[in-house]
């Protein structure tokens, strides 16, 4: 029997298609890499990480990590990373809190509360985050009054010099003491939290809605008030659906923190952009950014997987 031509052989076809695709990809990648090599050598920038030790020469507006302009690029990027982690950490906590409240509120018996929650979600979801961020920063926080006329809220004082929590006092026309957030950080957090919380609210709402009506009724017939029902009966079951949704929202929040560059908060991306502009080391900086952000996503996913397992174990 004559051998089958390859285009008719069902066993060979799969391999051949893969070989063709693989070859095609290899060719494209090889071309790109060779171009890269040529262009980099011409610009005098061979791929290396040694430049990370050179002095950065630029200031960073605010850092948790001690840093001065004579420190290395590596330290500058680390400072940026710490700033990013600060925003993401606080942001996750606050947006979860707000999101859970808003999500639960959409099931309230009070129509005003329900309506408010729905309106909040529907309005915030449909306006781009960047627009909200620049709005908060330029139209709200930058227009705050000077320190001696600071806006007083319970536990908060808002002024041109920053947002002060927990008891700052006016000394010689300036606010001192307490915990100070720069305007940039405050605006970034406000915009990011309000935006993310709307999406988290939807996740929470979907999770609660997935719990069968019978659970509510059973709890009610046992004499539990609605709030207690929510806390003790419904939420634990809803969590099974909520946790995966939260995972993707948290990752979104981490990625969205990179918009800080638009309002002057020196997060990792902003510092990286300045570094690139000064050193011209595009490829290395880009790869560093990708590795860090992908790593951050992975950490969040691992954390949420752990939470999911916790939630699962509880009821088996």
């Amino acid at each position: 029997m004559t051998a089958l031509p390859w285009w008719r052989d069902s066993r060979k076809l799969g391999w051949l298609v893969q070989a063709a695709v693989g070859l095609g990809l290899l060719v494209v990648v090889a071309l790109l890499l060779s171009n890269l090599e040529q262009n980099l050598t011409r610009a005098g920038l061979r791929l290396t990480l040694g430049w990370l030790n050179q002095p950065a020469g630029f200031d960073i507006a605010e850092t948790l990590l001690p840093y001065k302009a004579s420190d290395s690029y590596g330290r500058a990027l680390a400072a940026g990373l710490v700033n990013t982690l600060r925003v993401v950490g606080i942001g996750l906590v606050l947006s979860t809190a707000l999101g859970v409240v808003a999500g639960a509120a959409s099931f309230s018996t009070n129509p005003l509360l329900r309506g408010l929650s729905r309106t909040y979600v529907e309005v915030v979801r449909n306006i781009p985050l960047l627009l909200q961020l620049v709005f908060w920063y330029f139209a709200v926080f930058l227009t705050l009054p000077p320190a001696n006329q600071a806006v007083q809220l319970p536990g908060l004082q808002l002024a041109k010099s920053g947002v002060y929590l927990l008891g700052a006092r006016l000394v010689n026309g300036e606010l001192v003491g307490g915990w100070r957030l720069s305007l940039e950080l405050a605006a970034l957090l406000t915009g990011l939290v309000i935006y993310s919380a709307a999406f988290i609210a939807e996740v929470v709402r979907g999770g609660i809605a997935s719990v069968p009506r019978g659970q509510w009724e059973a709890a009610e017939s046992l004499g539990l008030k609605p709030l207690a029902t929510l806390r003790l009966v419904v939420l634990p079951q809803a969590l099974r659906v909520i946790v995966p949704g939260l995972n993707s929202q948290y990752i979104s929040l981490a990625k969205n923190s990179s918009l800080a560059v638009a309002i002057g908060y020196p997060d990792l991306y902003a510092v990286a952009e300045t570094t690139l502009n000064q050193t011209g080391r595009g490829i290395e900086v880009f790869l560093l950014l990708m590795v860090v952000y992908l790593g951050l996503d992975l950490c969040i996913s691992l954390l949420m997987n752990g939470v999911e397992r916790l939630v699962h174990l509880k009821d088996r």
Partner: peptide
């Protein structure tokens, strides 16, 4: 998975600044 894990701004950044490196003759 790589694209979904990256912030859009870094990818736009790549497009603007690095495409010149990847294409022949700048």
């Amino acid at each position: 998975e790589v694209i979904r894990g990256a912030p859009l701004i870094t990818l736009l950044f790549l497009g603007q600044n690095l495409v010149g490196f990847l294409l022949p003759g700048g």
